[in-house]
Structures are given as structure tokens and as C-alpha cells.
């Protein structure tokens, strides 16, 4: 199929960007979206031009490295799918596709379609872990976990940290990411000792970089792992408790 691409090009973090149009003839419908970009890039390199910079790693939808706005939707037109797993048979001959980087104050553009997602690492560093003593790995089945709880924790843990939730949010909020990371630990017995400390630290780090949630639900629709905004309600509840906890004790 023959496609026309409108791609955001930006030389560096400080430079102004602009859209450039590229013709992409003869794209195989079995190519993935990123393979399509690879093909365009090989042609650009052959012509001695600068290839389009974009992030990708595993290309099987589990690492969270890729992510661009495709026609105004994070990760493109297929719901519950990272852009690396979108295949070109979802498009037809003659389509024009607009590709833009994720935009948020917390995600500064580095080059073309690449954004810096360090702010997510800061949120994880604030409490997205459990503290364990070093030594031999404990027996995995030592602590029984109720099936429903384990399932919910696993649903939250499916977050790959790609940032589509922030990109989709009209407020540039990172509530869904933070809620997923907080919930998957807060639901499990291993996460209990640091539960409220974690929630408080992660929410407050999040608020240093991102906007605030107004319950549009765009994040849930954009999430390649289809993480539910139910976790945002859990985050709000645990944050409220983290603020009141210990106030009247001692």
C-alpha cells in the first residue's frame, strides 16, 4: 500500500519542531507500524537524509519503550495494543497518517518522536518497590494470597510504563501510571508495611511533574494494557489515608 506520513521532526530538546511530509509507497500490510517506519528510515538513509528518531525495544508490546501519537491517539488506532503491535493491515492504500511525540511537561521531547520519561523513574524511586532483606530468595508460596486479590494486583502490575496515559490525558496527568504502580504493591501482603508511606511519596512525586486527574477516562482507553481507572479510586483512597494516618496516634 502507498501511504503519506506527516511526521513531527525536531532536531533537539531546545529546537522548535515542525511537521514534515514523507511518501511511503509499497508498504507491506504485514509490516508492523514500527517496521513501516524502519522502511521509511532506510529509504531516508539511502537518500542521505536524517532518519526519523523513535524509541522501541522489544517490539512485542511488553517493554513500554515505544509510544507515539498516531492521528491524535496514543499508540494508534487499535485498542489495548502498543504501537509496535499495530500492523499495517489496519490501514488502507492512500491513507495519510500523522505521527507526533507524546506531549507533557513531564515528558520533554528529545528528538523527533523520542521523549524523556525520567519523571516516571522518579515516581518509582519514591516508593515503587518493597524493601526486603538480602539473602536467599524466600519460598514464593510461603505467603498465601487470595485469588481475587492476586488477580487484581496482576492487572495493575501489567503496566509497562509507556506513558500513553499521560499522553492521552487532556490534563497531562500521570494518575493511571501511578495508580497501577501503587496498587500492584498495595494490594499484596508484601506491600503492606510500606503501603501508606509509598502512596504518599509516589503521589507527591507525581504531582511535581504532571497534571491532575479529572476523571475523563482517556488514559484507560489509551492504555495498551487496558488498565482500569478503578485503580485511580484506590490510589485516592490510600492517599487520603496516608495523610490522616498517625495524626491522632501518640
Amino acid at each position: 500500500m502507498d501511504l503519506t506520513l506527516k511526521v513531527w521532526r525536531q532536531d533537539g530538546p531546545e529546537q522548535a519542531g515542525r511537521f514534515e511530509t514523507y511518501e511511503a509507497p509499497g508498504i507491506d500490510e504485514h509490516a508492523s507500524f514500527l517496521e513501516m517506519l524502519d522502511i521509511v528510515n532506510e529509504r531516508l538513509i539511502a537518500d542521505g537524509r536524517e532518519p526519523i528518531a523513535f524509541d522501541s525495544d522489544c517490539r512485542e508490546g511488553i517493554c513500554g519503550t515505544c509510544g507515539v501519537m498516531v492521528d491524535g491517539v496514543p499508540h494508534g488506532p487499535v485498542r489495548g495494543t502498543a504501537v509496535c503491535q499495530v500492523h499495517m493491515f489496519h490501514y488502507s492504500d492512500g491513507d495519510e497518517i500523522t505521527i507526533e511525540p507524546f506531549r507533557a511537561a513531564g515528558f520533554p521531547v528529545q528528538k523527533d518522536l523520542i521523549v524523556d520519561r525520567t519523571a516516571f523513574d522518579r515516581i518509582i524511586q519514591a516508593g515503587g518497590y518493597i524493601s526486603v532483606n538480602t539473602g536467599a530468595a524466600p519460598e514464593a508460596n510461603l505467603i498465601p494470597v487470595v485469588k481475587d486479590v492476586a488477580d487484581r494486583a496482576f492487572d495493575a502490575a501489567a503496566c509497562i510504563g509507556c506513558g500513553a496515559c499521560v499522553a492521552a490525558c487532556p490534563n497531562g496527568a500521570a494518575q493511571l501510571f501511578t495508580a497501577a504502580k501503587v496498587s500492584h504493591l498495595n494490594l499484596l501482603p508484601q506491600g503492606q508495611p510500606e503501603r501508606y508511606q509509598r502512596t504518599e511519596a509516589m503521589v507527591e512525586t507525581m504531582e511535581r511533574y504532571f497534571g491532575s486527574c479529572t476523571n475523563y477516562g482517556e488514559c484507560e482507553a489509551a492504555c495498551p494494557k487496558e488498565i482500569s481507572i478503578d485503580f485511580i479510586a484506590l490510589l485516592n483512597k490510600d492517599y487520603r489515608k496516608s495523610k490522616s494516618r498517625g495524626r491522632w496516634a501518640s
Binding site: G72, A105, G211, Y216, G217
Partner: peptide, 25 residues
């Protein structure tokens, strides 16, 4: 004000809302 600051440069192409309804926006 916070939310405006969270996206200083708006999307330069047309944003396509999937579920955010008229009332919410």
C-alpha cells in the same frame, strides 16, 4: 492552572478523544 502547565505545548495535530464525553470536557 496546574493542568495547563502540565502540557505547555499542546498537540500540534488534531487530538482524537476516545471516551472523554462532552459533559466532562
Amino acid at each position: 492552572i496546574t493542568n495547563r502547565k502540565a502540557r505547555p505545548l499542546r498537540y500540534q495535530s488534531r487530538r482524537d478523544y476516545v471516551v472523554a464525553d462532552f459533559a466532562a470536557r
